[in-house]
Design a protein around this nucleic acid. Structure first.
Length: 604
RNA sequence: GGUCUGGUAGCUCAGCUGGAUAGAGCAACAGCCUUCUAAGCUGUGGGUCUUGGGUUCGAAUCCCAACCGGAUCACCA
């Protein structure tokens, strides 16, 4: 807004002076560096030729002309080719007066066709871990950010509830479970199932090892591979699991019943985790209901000649002319693969929602998969394949490398949340913060702080980057963290409470006519919020929001340190104004952090 | 090997649609609580932005190459 006004002003002034119109895209403003005086800076180097002036001269002349043209400009200075422009206090105060009491300042009204965001998409054979946490927080947060920026977002989850991996858990439970249940063991359902999945793997490995030839270790690599494959194919455990899958697909009542029961345990467990994490969905798809979709698309592709069938009856798409490989779409036994299912579910979503965009929040190891998905859809005549966006994010690594469930190096989601809440509790108690809270309120507070720390920690890093999580060092509560922002908010609330106690009423009218530097810095920063929100939405980046709330909180803390608010009792107008600033900062911290799912406590 | 992606302070990360002396936090050190919550504020030290070329008034940012790391190229999902 401000930039747009200034851009027009610059162009007009330039044309006045030199009779030529400068190219619009060259006219860019940036925030003036703090060591110089001014609010916004324009670099004049690109216009030297057009104006036929030297840098300093051009900047000087432009500054004078712009000041003549608009009252908004209170002054300017020139350093080399940089024209630093000072915006009048009036402008900032007008902005503040208009927006300071808006609880949801900067949010846009929702319009347009739906944007379908798929995230989470768990397997039902093991509990959620840290990697899933990143996925869930990202998917949820990006959805909230886009909504706040006016997008009609629909959040969906596609649960992978069928396949060989579930059969493994089922088989292990049948063999060694002795009929145990979440109730009988007191274990969360998803963890119980996960244990049986691990148990299967352990027993399977044992069996395979026994089946390997004695000279296995002496074999060369290729021979080892062959021997391993042979042993695995001989495994009765694996064959039983496969049998189970066949029975499942044939709707065998006994298998289906077991499957439904065990899946339900997992869902009950997931629900608890989702709720604690604060994520939710408008719609949940189950793969068991959608995995056959897509076969008809493949059929259509065969008829159109876009796909082809090999002698062994398998169906492929040849993408080699686009620089990719051949991709299997139906196995030789006619069953569908991952890609086939995704083709089908994409088609289903398009039918159900007629979306503007389909966003998939999925790890970056699947970049290739989504690339292929889009191209196959387009080949099948579905131009909307180009509206698919893979929001890919980096893995979460531990100090000793990747998380591997089989090696027991995963950070479990439930455990991690427990730890965070426990840490929040002990830190609070150490600082003597929660003395006068009821036990229930205190617990709620610890939850807010613990989860706030975790969410901020994950979301502040650029989604596409691989990030490191060090459990030993754990997550900080000082500095650039969630609790820092929460603390700032709690502090503001405390000031506002005190004001009320003192009988100082907050009114909505802004009467202040001049700005002091810290006051101005905060207002300027808040002015930029809609731009940050828009960029975060366009870039699908909660990190930008996190950055903003940290900067705002830091700015406020400096203001708090330097400027008396309530103690400013001699100047009633200034006290009122500073309280209004407090009110707007607190509202904006709530408003922005809500998009990250981070709660702002009133005291801590 | 092909494709994609990353390399910024001891550590974790910003900055990357080209701009002024590359920024935060943590860790280290030194200050600030009889005064609005010290989970805070102020200061000090810490950098060949992996390397080498190129583009230009100007490069951490764009281009090319090399080095190092990660992902991926399944009749797994």
């Amino acid at each position: 807004m401000l930039e747009e006004i200034l851009r027009q002003l610059f162009i007009k002034s330039f044309t006045n002076l030199y009779g030529q119109e400068p190219p619009v895209q060259q006219v860019n403003f940036q925030k003036t560096r703090p060591e110089f005086e001014g609010d916004l800076t324009i670099v004049v180097f690109p216009f030297l030729k057009l104006a036929g002036r030297k840098p300093e001269q051009l900047a000087e002349e432009m500054g004078n002309e712009m000041m003549k043209e608009s009252e908004m400009i209170a002054g300017f200075n020139v350093v080399k080719g940089f024209l630093n422009i000072l915006i009048s206090d009036r402008f900032w105060l007008n902005f503040f007066a208009e927006n300071h009491d808006k609880e949801l300042y900067g949010r846009k009204e929702i319009t347009g066709k739906p944007v379908v965001v798929e995230y989470s998409s768990p397997n039902t054979n093991k509990p959620l871990h840290l990697g899933h946490i990143r996925n869930n927080l990202l998917g949820w947060s990006v959805s909230e950010i886009m909504k706040a920026n006016g997008k009609n977002v629909v959040r969906v989850n596609l649960v992978n509830d069928r396949g060989i991996h579930i059969c493994k858990s089922m088989l292990a439970w049948k063999k060694w479970g002795n009929g145990c249940t979440p109730e009988s063991t007191g274990k969360k359902g998803d963890h119980l199932i996960g244990d049986f999945y691990v148990l299967f793997d352990k027993e399977f490995k044992k069996e395979v090892k026994a089946l390997l030839p004695e000279n296995y270790d002496q074999l060369d690599e290729k021979a080892q591979e062959e021997a391993m494959a042979k042993a695995e194919s001989q495994s009765t455990l694996m064959n039983e699991a496969r049998e189970m899958l066949v029975k499942w697909e044939a709707n065998d009542p006994e298998v289906r019943l077991l499957w439904e029961m065990m899946n339900q345990w997992v869902y009950d467990g997931f629900d608890v985790t989702y709720k604690r994490l604060g994520v939710s969905f408008e719609k949940i798809y189950y793969e068991s209901q959608t995995y056959l979709l897509g076969k008809s698309l493949v059929q259509e592709g065969l008829e159109k000649g876009v796909l082809y069938r090999r002698d062994d009856n398998s169906v492929w798409c040849d993408l080699r002319d686009e620089g990719l490989d051949e991709k299997l779409l139906l196995r030789r036994d006619g069953t569908s693969v991952y890609m086939t299912q995704d083709l089908g579910t994409a088609q289903l979503r398009v039918k159900e929602y007629d979306p503007e965009k389909l966003i998939y929040v999925v790890g970056n190891e699947q970049i290739y998969h989504f690339d292929v998905l889009k191209r196959v859809l387009v080949r099948l005549g579905r131009e909307w394949g180009n509206d698919i966006e893979h929001l890919s994010y980096g893995m979460v690594e531990l100090p000793n490398g990747k998380m591997k469930s089989r090696e027991g190096t995963v950070v479990d989601a439930d455990d991690l949340m427990d730890e965070m809440v426990a840490t929040a509790k002990s830190v609070s108690e150490e600082l003597g913060k929660a003395k006068d809270l009821s036990p229930e309120d205190a617990d709620r507070l610890y939850h807010t702080i613990g989860l706030g720390a975790l969410k901020y920690f994950i979301l502040k890093v650029d989604p596409k980057k691989t990030m490191l999580f060090n459990p030993a060092e754990s997550i900080d509560f000082n500095g650039n963290t969630g609790p820092f922002v929460q603390y700032t908010h709690a502090r503001i609330c405390s000031v506002l409470r005190k004001a009320k106690d003192m009988g100082v009423e907050l009114d909505n009218e802004v009467r202040m006519s001049d700005l002091q530097s810290k006051e101005k810095e905060i207002i300027v920063m808040m002015y930029g919020w809609p731009i940050v929100l828009n960029q975060a939405s366009e870039n699908r980046s909660p990190a930008m929001i996190a950055n903003f709330i940290f900067e705002l909180a830091k700015e406020f803390n400096q203001f708090y340190q330097e400027c008396p608010i309530l103690k400013e009792s001699a100047d009633v107008e200034r006290r009122q104004f500073r309280l209004q600033i407090c009110g707007m900062v607190a509202a904006l911290l709530r408003n922005a952090s809500e998009l990250l799912g981070i709660g702002m406590p009133n005291r801590m």
